[in-house]
Design a protein around this nucleic acid. Structure first.
Length: 476
DNA sequence: GATGATGATTAGTC
DNA sequence: GACTAATCATCATC
């Protein structure tokens, strides 16, 4: 709503209020006072010196008076001033004035007090609170950023959220500025209008009885009118903020596919932990960091993946194979490199009963890998599970596209294992390290359709039964 | 535009 | 609070 319309509305309302008063006065004025008609609260003098006792003459007088009133706007300012002066100086004026005051005192009681001391409007309070909460009203510092932050938190806080964030803040600031500008305008207009009406009433109080209390009441009416306009402004502002907020929050539904790299990282983790694809909080954080996404997005991704995998295992086999092969090759490369290192360094660290989880295999330091691999390939009698081997093999399918069948997968796993074994044996003289009989639970899913318990994860496989178990005594 | 893939949300369960 | 299952909404591909 434009400011001018609001002011116009206010003026209209005020005019209506004043009209009401005028009507009241007019109804009072219907009484003839000592031969003088009272119109609109204004005591009028007997025109042309007529005493007004005669009936026809009185009618004529009233006609003249009405004519005068109707044509008063046609008169020049000087003329009008002169007339006004005449009225003020009329000998009957004080008497009429006191009578008018008396009448007004009696009738005005019903008007007075009717609208005094309004309780605070709950709607207005609600709007005020909301504007404060949204950072539109109140102190500027941090205004809106808290709301934006809350919205951002709800949206998951992705990397590019900061852009939307600042966008939101900028728009909120814009709304805030408009709101304050309009509010200022309203206040200014209210003050101007109040002053104007007060002056007018003070001026009029010379010709009609207007007490200071009445002026006060009128000021109150004006203020109420303006505050109702203010409420409309606040309502509009709230609506604007709501729209902005909903748009901003809706943006979270606007999904963007994760990057290819991120999807790969997540898939790698998923398929290498297929027996128990429930990353710990730390793992989630790590994955989130690697993928440049949030932890909750990682959780979402795993939630979706688990469900979708479970629903359609066959469909994911190819993917599973790809990632399993990829992991195997990576592991083989790592092993080969490490073996070379170990040969160069020729450490012979004793090892017994060594088992390694896939997370543990991802050792950062070359030294750790060296130690690990030297354990694998030296004469110690320990055993180890190939990195990711347990989980990896669970999901393996024939690379030549056969459908998923437990036994078949076993064979396919074997072929993968053979490849891996070949790679390793070529580099370290390692032979037959990987047992041939792959015992697995398809996809890590148990009979109930749930994933195996973490403790039964194939990443921890006993040397005697695990498919990926490596008996160090077979090496060399 | 139809369709499948995929990220996000939600209600219900444990 | 984490998880599942269903669903929604959007993206990507044809």
């Amino acid at each position: 709503m434009s400011f001018s319309i609001c002011v116009a509305q206010c003026t209209d309302s005020l005019a209506a209020t004043m009209d009401d008063q005028a009507r009241i006065m007019q109804s009072i004025g219907g009484v003839s006072l000592a031969g003088h008609s009272v119109q609109g609260g204004m005591a009028l003098p007997p025109p042309h010196g007529h005493d007004g006792t005669d009936g026809d003459g009185r009618k004529q007088d009233i006609g003249d008076i009405l004519h005068q009133i109707m044509t008063i706007t046609d008169q020049s300012l000087d003329e009008a001033q002169a007339k006004k002066h005449g009225l003020n100086c009329h000998r009957m004026k004080p008497a009429l004035f006191s009578v008018l005051c008396e009448i007004k005192e009696k009738t005005g009681l019903s008007i007075r007090g009717a609208q005094e001391e309004d309780p605070p409007d709950p709607q207005l309070m609600r709007l005020d609170n909301m504007l404060l909460a949204e950072g539109v009203a109140g102190p500027e510092k941090g205004g809106g950023s808290a709301a934006a932050a809350a919205a951002a938190a709800a949206s998951g806080g992705a990397a590019d959220n900061s852009i939307e964030h600042s966008d939101y803040r900028a728009k909120l600031t814009q709304i805030r500025q408009i709101y304050h500008t309009e509010l200022e305008k309203y206040e200014q207009a209210c003050n101007e209008f109040t002053t104007h009406v007060m002056n007018l009433l003070r001026e009029q109080s010379r010709t009609r009885p207007i007490s200071p209390k009445e002026i006060e009441r009128m000021v109150g009416i004006i203020h109420r009118k303006f505050s109702s306009i203010q409420m409309q402004l606040k309502q509009s502002t709230c609506e604007a903020v709501m729209i902005l907020r909903s748009r901003f929050l809706d943006a979270r539904r606007k999904r963007r596919n994760f990057s290819k790299q991120a999807t790969e990282i997540l898939n790698e983790y998923f398929y290498s932990h297929l027996s128990n694809p429930y990353p710990s909080e730390e793992a989630k954080e790590e994955l989130a960091k690697k993928c440049s996404i949030t932890v909750s997005q990682v959780s979402n991704w795993f939630g979706n993946k688990r469900i979708r995998y479970k629903k359609n295992i066959g469909k994911f086999q190819e993917e599973a194979n790809l990632y399993a092969a990829k992991t195997a090759v990576n592991a083989a490369h790592a092993a080969a490199a490490a073996v070379q290192n170990s040969q160069a360094n020729s450490p012979t660290t004793p090892n017994s009963g060594f088992q390694m989880k896939d997370e543990e295999f991802q050792l950062d330091s070359a030294e750790s890998k060296n130690t690990l691999l030297s354990n694998m390939f030296t004469g110690s009698s320990g055993s180890f599970n190939l990195p990711n081997s347990g989980d990896m093999f669970l999901s393996m399918q024939s690379l030549n596209g056969d459908s998923y069948q437990g036994a078949q997968v076993g064979a396919n796993v074997q072929s993968q294992v053979d490849t891996l074994r070949h790679v390793i044996s070529q580099t370290a003289g390692y032979n037959d390290a990987l047992g041939g009989n792959a015992m697995y639970s398809p996809h890590g899913l148990n009979a109930n359709g749930g994933w195996q318990d973490a403790t039964t994860s194939s990443s921890v496989i006993s040397p005697t039964e695990g498919p990926g178990s490596v008996h160090s005594d077979t090496s060399n």
